[in-house]
Design a protein around this nucleic acid. Structure first.
Length: 110
DNA sequence: GTGGTGACGACAC
DNA sequence: GGTGTCGCCACCA
């Protein structure tokens, strides 16, 4: 497609995450072509709240299933938002993380 | 234009 | 097995 900013590309993927599912920085980074650029995903999400688009950043967690950027998230705690979608979170860690994990590189590659 | 930083991941020791 | 360090690319000062 047209040349899009790395941010926009990350937003696009995150918005595609279905409710009740979650994705990881590494998964998005890998989908973008470089799993080693996972830091860029986090950086993009850092600006997600600055974007006019609503980005479910609470659905994006690290490879461990830990709710990292919760401190950067605005509004209610990420844990609460995830629980609203049916995702169980205990101590900032997602339960059934492997089962709820949604991989764009896999789902979109079908 | 350069340097430093960043919501991470993987590898090395 | 835990800790430390590097790497990666994009944005800010």
């Amino acid at each position: 497609m047209s040349k899009k900013d790395f941010f926009q590309l990350v937003y696009q993927v995150v918005e595609l995450v279905p409710m009740g599912r979650i994705t990881t920085y590494g998964a998005v980074a890998e989908y973008l072509g470089s799993k080693q650029s996972s830091r860029m995903v986090g950086w993009a999400l850092n600006a997600s709240h600055l974007s006019t688009t609503d980005i479910p950043a609470h659905r994006v967690v690290n490879r461990k299933g830990l709710l990292t950027g919760k401190m950067h998230f605005k509004g209610k705690p990420m844990q609460t938002l995830l629980e609203e979608e049916g995702i169980k979170v205990i101590d900032n860690q997602i339960q059934n993380f492997d089962d709820l994990l949604w991989l764009p590189i896999k789902e979109l590659e079908i």
